[in-house]
Design a protein around this nucleic acid. Sequence first.
DNA 1: CTGAAAGCGCTTACAG
DNA 2: CTGAAAGCGCTTACAG
Lengths: 351, 351
Amino acid sequence: MKSKDSTRGGAKAATTRGNGTVTLEMVAQAAGVSPSTVSRILNGTAVVNELKKQAVDDAIARLGFVPNPMARGLAGGRTLSIGVVTQAIDSPFYGAALRGIEDELDPAGYSPLYVSGHWNAAAEARCIEVLRSRRVDGIVVLTGRLTDQALKTCAKSLPVVVTGRSLKAPGLFSLNFDNCEGGRLATQHLIDLGHRRIAFISGDPEHPDAAERLRGYTLALESAGISFDPALVVPGEYHEVSGLLAVDRLIEARQGFTAIFAANDQMAFGAALGLTRRSLRVPDDVSLVGFDDLPTSMYAIPPLSTVHQPAYELGRLAAQAMLQLLAGDKPIVEVPLPRLIARESSRRLRG
Amino acid sequence: MKSKDSTRGGAKAATTRGNGTVTLEMVAQAAGVSPSTVSRILNGTAVVNELKKQAVDDAIARLGFVPNPMARGLAGGRTLSIGVVTQAIDSPFYGAALRGIEDELDPAGYSPLYVSGHWNAAAEARCIEVLRSRRVDGIVVLTGRLTDQALKTCAKSLPVVVTGRSLKAPGLFSLNFDNCEGGRLATQHLIDLGHRRIAFISGDPEHPDAAERLRGYTLALESAGISFDPALVVPGEYHEVSGLLAVDRLIEARQGFTAIFAANDQMAFGAALGLTRRSLRVPDDVSLVGFDDLPTSMYAIPPLSTVHQPAYELGRLAAQAMLQLLAGDKPIVEVPLPRLIARESSRRLRG
DNA sequence: CTGAAAGCGCTTACAG
DNA sequence: CTGAAAGCGCTTACAG
């Protein structure tokens, strides 16, 4: 009796569901209560008699009942899943952030759904569509190139948390790392070491965080009374090869420089290789500072001086903010301040 | 008329769903057909009259209908999502594989659901549970420490694709990169360069792929008539710090060696730093070869010689195999052969 | 080829 | 505090 083995879907390949499936209804029956009661206990939606609760908990354990998230989603209007728009799931930087999100969401019963925007506004817009069609309960956007307006619009129908910019709107929470201060710190470090001709390999200035790092660079220069030389600023795209190319340009343009600040570690790695290729030693001939502090940066040769960006922590905080938004609270999270990690790629300018 | 604004779920925070939702039923009505027909067109489940199809397609476009995956899942017994058990979502190696999976699954309408096992059998078992409770249609396991038995059991109720081992079972497909051959290639490369005292920094030998790489190492040695010296094999754990420590051990044990083969690139990076710290130059004093060919390895200083492992491609293939399994077909995929990428960290032993 | 109907497994007003 | 009932938006045998 009670054969739950539906005949349909049988041909649907190895996707055997059937048999083993324990439903809430079965639990209710086993515990001698109504499905409603089981549901209420499951969700803590109402106070129920302690004895019944006991019986239900027993039945759940005994039968090994696991609620079906799809049924839950359909009936309850939520999926317990959070969309995460990331730029590249295989980026060394974002990887840590994703882990942070995962670690924070998991205990709350939510699952992340990752989609990659590939640093492309159109692709990101498509990501949002995919996530909406999957009916996620909220969306976390890690930096990216979506316009502020697009995010605000999205936030009208769904809670949104975005990192890498400062934005206020209903249903929207933004969480900004102080990239400007980070850029200032890195540059100041080099200035403190006696450098005055400091090249800057920038990220795409269209990107808020890249622009901010550049601003930090100019700020530090300014406060040290060093005049800004546009010839020392070379554009890059946050990849190793950008750093390599930038060094070539810098050297070929015969710009004298004794130090380089690269707007991220990956470009710093490329720059280090470029310098080596030109027989310039780091840090003996040129000091080098990066930004991000990737897990691998401490193992670079030489270990890279950089600005630590707490990617994992930022992921956790973003997820935390999302959970608060979902709970109807106004998120309060404190983003760690940037700090400089001086390692071996930077040294005092020799007189 | 037709107010779809359900009163329930209203207090559920910003999770506004309501209003905008276009349902299949609305499409059917707009097109003047039954919901069944719309469904059939959507799924290509049966041949329908061309005119009706036209009308339905129109209605879908006009209303901007997007099927609700949860309803679909509940009714159809599948979720169109594939669980992916990865070891660390932020690993440089697995990141590329995940992207491959994503790229392959996406056009087929499936979404990946990532969970991290952290190189821990118990955690991986939990991952499987999470995925089952989410009712994924299939599970892709990237390497990992689950026992063969556990995988086979899992495959009884769900199609499973696993990388990093060779295993045959109903509902299970395995996809193995030839780690042994890769290990042999790396070692042979060093032998060809004249090295005979070749140290090996291994991964955890409990792990099939690590064990295979070691086997490749011994094979190459053997065929070159070099006797295997256990003192030259140091255990590592696939992380940079393992490589660093291994070099320390090797040097302190006063094992003469002119080359090192590290079982993965991350350990090779650590080893390179360790050597540098001891004032040993790569490749002038010690040749170094890694395994994996991470995206960053070509930018290491010096650029790392290594065995290329097509992580992205492997991800795609695994996903492809899963799609075939889901379609009820026997997967046929061809795994690329390992190939050696000789860069600048290895050189001929000087007479 | 195509409808009407039942059902997937839950949740939630609605009445007690 | 707790049931009975309706409904979430689809899919799929079952009959035409």
